[in-house]
Design a protein around this nucleic acid. Structure first.
Lengths: 200, 200
DNA sequence: GGCCCACTAGACTAACCAGTCTAATCAGAC
DNA sequence: GTCTGATTAGACTGGTTAGTCTAGTGGGCC
């Protein structure tokens, strides 16, 4: 049942997955041969599908962007919504994949400025925008203090990962995902952005 | 007036500075020849002072750690103290040097785990500890809400740099140091950690 | 059966790099 | 003036890499 075009798609897919893992685990410096070997494919086959190492890297990064995108659904009260978002945010960004993507992109940003910009806009900036859109609604409903929603979103996402991400990047990833921390951060955020009570 | 030992120290110093700049600008991958050329010195001279590229890199990192250390002095009221600290913190970490050090160490941490750990402890962890020591005093004086001081310090430092550092790492360093942002963050922090008013 | 085309293994080029070695230079120290 | 030791330019080794090329294999497709 496997047609020619199926096999073509299959090898391409295997190559992309192998490259994704290889770049994640060893950075951009990983050799073409190691990627081909990981996909169990000859080096020339790789060059049949991708014109150069840079092009393959760009393709992998474009795929990887999705894996650090976090959504939120606005059911329930504000605290519950933010808790669910925050848990998902920490889980994605502090996973070993999330850390590895951050590391690789950080290292190679000077050599691939366009790629870095695309990642920044479609990844972190998009997540912040979605969060800010939720926050502005909560503000209008009087459930949060009226403030700059982009700023508020930035503060929450910063508090959620900054220090633990650094720990992960520096290879001290013991207990990166403490269960209590998410709630601690969300409550801290809610104190800072609680609605002013003394409204007549 | 230049003795032999002076000249020795001088070339060593030139080498260290050249290596520091080179690693910052081009990462660990920069070749030994480029470092030697930048110090206007023969390659063999470099090897007279440092046994290997790795050793030179370790030396440079040890020097660089100081440049991301931030202190605070506890004069004045809490807000003024935190403002001064926060301004200094942002200025150091978001400078092009601070960003470059972060980038290089992040990229090479898997290959130099001991060095990464040393950086983490003597840099970010030390700064957090100093800030936490100040915060715990303020808490005891009733000028801040009683809470885990390490957690509070982590939140403030996270809010100060997380997003802008990412911007810098991704090469979008236009206006990294907005003048209003520091105060905005400090006030946000003070809202979250204001002392409970309703004490009888 | 014969054609097409992806795939394969491996040789090959051209470049780069860490680190060693050598022979020569040169400036203080005495 | 001679000695000492740092410095220098450059050759050299052994290794790695991205990317090209070639000759051959093998499975769908007609």
């Amino acid at each position: 049942m496997s047609t020619v075009v199926d096999m073509l798609q299959d090898t391409r897919q295997r190559l992309l997955e192998a490259a994704c893992e290889a770049f994640r685990e060893e950075g951009y410096q990983v050799s073409i041969d190691r990627i081909a070997a990981r996909a169990q494919v000859a080096r020339q086959t790789l060059y049949n599908h991708f014109p150069s190492k840079d092009a393959l890297f760009a393709e992998v990064v474009r795929h990887a962007i999705q894996s650090v995108l976090v959504t939120l659904d606005g059911d329930g009260d504000v605290r519950a919504t933010l808790l669910a978002f925050s848990e998902a945010y920490r889980a994605k960004l502090l996973s070993s994949e999330g850390i590895a993507i951050f590391r690789t992109l950080t290292a190679e940003a000077p050599r691939f400025p366009a790629l870095a910009k695309q990642f920044f806009r479609q990844g972190p900036l998009t997540t912040r925008k979605r969060l800010a859109e939720y926050l502005v609604r909560a503000m209008e409903e009087g459930r949060l203090k009226r403030d700059d929603p982009d700023f508020a979103a930035e503060m929450l996402t910063a508090m959620l990962v900054d220090f633990d991400r650094l720990r992960g990047l520096m290879n001290l990833q013991t207990d990166l995902l403490m269960s209590t921390k998410t709630a601690q951060v969300v409550d801290c955020f809610l104190r800072a952005f609680a609605p002013e009570k003394d409204m007549p």
